[in-house]
């Protein structure tokens, strides 16, 4: 990088709370701020290229890559990480479904899967296997444990009132 980096103070709204960060460089991603500055280590740094999906968070209600989002571009947005799915410590239905379905192996992809699944389940209709697969197509599981993950999310979509 040439020249002096111009760092800026920034306040991000994460899981409903305003979180100030003193100095953020232009190239710093949201993922880095979440993990290294705010201690929210749920979102994972996998490929850092937007391919693997382990860093997926919601911005303004939509799943996006936190590794491809620059922190300075996220002010004024509503950011929800996997920690925000269970604010009071009780598991969200989608988390409960993955736990009950043994749909976790190493767990590295799980936070990203949960965010994508959460967005899918907001449609409030039973989901087909194909719909879940399409919805999770941006989340890779290196353990290749897709079957149980997809089944758990289908069940969660059917269980809702």
């Amino acid at each position: 990088m040439t020249g002096e980096p111009v760092t800026l103070p920034v306040t991000l709204r994460v899981n409903g709370a305003e979180r100030p960060v003193a100095a953020v460089a232009p190239w710093t991603t949201l993922l880095t701020v979440l993990r290294d500055e705010l201690g929210l280590t749920g979102a994972k740094r996998g490929c850092n290229q937007g391919v693997c999906g382990a860093c997926t968070v919601m911005i303004d209600g939509e799943p996006v890559r936190s590794c491809l989002s620059l922190a300075l571009n996220c002010t004024g947005r509503d950011i929800v990480t996997v920690e925000g799915l269970a604010p009071a410590g009780a598991l969200a239905p989608v988390q409960q479904a993955l736990a009950e379905g043994n749909a976790v192996q190493c767990g590295f992809c799980t936070p990203g899967i949960l965010i994508s699944a959460h967005a899918l389940l907001r449609r409030n209709a039973p989901l087909s296997v194909d719909e879940v697969r399409a919805g999770l197509s941006g989340n890779l599981c290196r353990c290749s444990g897709y079957k149980k993950i997809v089944e758990a999310i289908v069940r969660a979509s059917e269980a809702r009132p």
Binding site: T29, N48, L68, S69
Partner: peptide, 13 residues
């Protein structure tokens, strides 16, 4: 910087 899907990936690399 538009959506960042390519530019930020290239910056990261």
């Amino acid at each position: 910087l538009a959506g960042g899907a390519t530019l930020v990936a290239m910056m990261n690399a």
